[in-house]
């Protein structure tokens, strides 16, 4: 899996959970301010990312992620820690 695939996976999950158009989802997009995530949806996002990438995320750390770009970086780091191969 490469970084671009992670980005695409993040966008896919975000669009599914938040029901937004892919065009709205940019690296700098804030989940709450730009994409309208409710608190319950933040939990759903974490679950969606875990399922999409086959990883387990620390919930507190995951919920502190504010933007799409930060989510990509966070998931990349977790994937590497949990033995999922990521090409730079």
């Amino acid at each position: 899996m490469d970084k671009q695939q992670i980005e695409q996976g993040v966008v896919k999950v975000v669009c599914q959970v938040l029901n937004v158009d892919p065009g709205m989802v940019q690296p700098e997009s804030n989940f709450v301010f730009d994409l309208g995530a409710e608190s319950v949806q933040s939990v759903e996002l974490v679950a969606g990312f875990e399922e999409e990438f086959g990883i387990e995320m620390d919930e507190d750390a995951a919920l502190s992620v504010e933007t799409v770009g930060m989510a990509v970086e966070f998931i990349t780091k977790v994937c590497k820690e949990q033995g999922v191969e990521v090409e730079e």
Binding site: L18, N19, V20, M24, F33, D34, L35, G36
Partner: peptide
């Protein structure tokens, strides 16, 4: 008056 909801994605 006039009311506007600001609700990203809605």
């Amino acid at each position: 008056g006039v009311l506007y909801p600001v609700a990203p994605g809605k």
